[in-house]
Design a protein around this nucleic acid. Sequence first.
DNA 1: ATTCTTATGTCTTATAGAAGACTACGGCAA
DNA 2: TTGCCGTAGTCTTCTATAAGACATAAGAAT
Lengths: 254, 254
Amino acid sequence: MASGSVRTAVRPDKAAAEEVPGFRPLYRQVYEVLVRRIAEGVWKPGDALPSEPEIAADLGVSHGTVRKALDELAAENLVLRRQGRGTYVASHDDARILFQFFKIVADTGEHRFPESRILSVDIVDADSDAVQRLAVRAGARMVRLDRVRSVGEKLCIFERILLPKVMFPGIEKRALPNNLYELYRSVFGVTIVRTTEKLKAVGATRSVAKHLDVAAGTPLLQVDRVAFGIDGKAAEWRVSLCLTDTTHYLSDLR
Amino acid sequence: MASGSVRTAVRPDKAAAEEVPGFRPLYRQVYEVLVRRIAEGVWKPGDALPSEPEIAADLGVSHGTVRKALDELAAENLVLRRQGRGTYVASHDDARILFQFFKIVADTGEHRFPESRILSVDIVDADSDAVQRLAVRAGARMVRLDRVRSVGEKLCIFERILLPKVMFPGIEKRALPNNLYELYRSVFGVTIVRTTEKLKAVGATRSVAKHLDVAAGTPLLQVDRVAFGIDGKAAEWRVSLCLTDTTHYLSDLR
DNA sequence: ATTCTTATGTCTTATAGAAGACTACGGCAA
DNA sequence: TTGCCGTAGTCTTCTATAAGACATAAGAAT
């Protein structure tokens, strides 16, 4: 275990420091130790972390330094702090995922998880697009998943999802729930913490139009998303085609 | 001036505290004082703030408390800290605005400020949509601005912008630059720090299609944005219709 | 041009008290 | 006895203060 004082590696004396450009402040190193432990599953989502003084003693740094590291973790939604109770590894439950990653909102402001219906599950080889987005090697075995999603009765999203088979062994044989990220975490130990999305407006192709029950050429919002795990590796590539006549994609910039 | 010790108003004794639900920690109050001073122009964008110990002495709190307040300011991009030099009010220059608020990116990854050509400038009365988004009263005088934008030779955005006339007196008589937010700040003292955007896919209307030189019905990405100033007041409503055949809207979620 | 000084922000540690939340225990009533 | 309630104690995070070591940059002195 990489436990014990993190201090030994820190703040080399001045002469040495000049030769080590990759110098990070102590609280940053503590941050990294904690992230690694969470990624390795030492503490699992939902678990309480040890108390701040405990972590401090464990790593041989002061309470305040641990606090600053935890501040960063909390700011990135990796942990959840509750005064008087403790600090918990973010559970990434439905509500959390809904607000953090699911940006499609009804024009009325209502924010609901849409139902899903699986259309097909296939094993395919990675093409060049997949290689580029997921950083897998060409021809790697992938699981491809097509589904349509609806809010209430209304069909609104056609979605194609691509996963590296090696990260999700046997997922093609499973029953697939509505909230895939929760499945990734609980069964395969892959916690999604970050995504990048590219949005375009496109016309519905004939086949997509049929799935969504609209005319070919209907304008659709195309969301091309790559999702990354806690270790920074790309884990999922998903292209969603959304009908936005009664919904929109909400983006707050600060 | 509301200078001097902020301390008097803080942490009333326990009995009183129960009657004061709007209690905020000291560092938060310091934060608010600093925001107000920046908003009032005591320190202008680009200016250096006083040193941390100076602010601490000025407000009668400890250095660490000021630091914590500045941490928040920095996290919200309101100030820029440079070790060994000082803390500066964020300049919100072109590059900053480009990265913070302009999310349309070429598919190649290139990120450029598009050129603008003004189509019309009008004075109009606020309709119900404007009232709802900008929180002005019905019938308030507004400045409406239509323009098309292009990257290089390629037309890509049609934009309609609505401003409360009272916040931007005389703007309708001015030469309008490419980067409006910079104009808002330098001439009218309105610094945009936050926006919310609603994205939809729509078909080009006949008139928009003509401006963008495409066929009517072409799928366009509609970005409906409200921009807020440092005081939290809505300052601009902008609807952009973007051709996304060679560009996309980039959204990073964490 | 190089080195030194000084000013300033950054990082770390330490201490102390406030506030929220859970647990254990004891008294009281049914 | 059994069940309920309130209180005290303890653990946790949160807020505030203070002080010193260190890093960085600007300008002065060499």
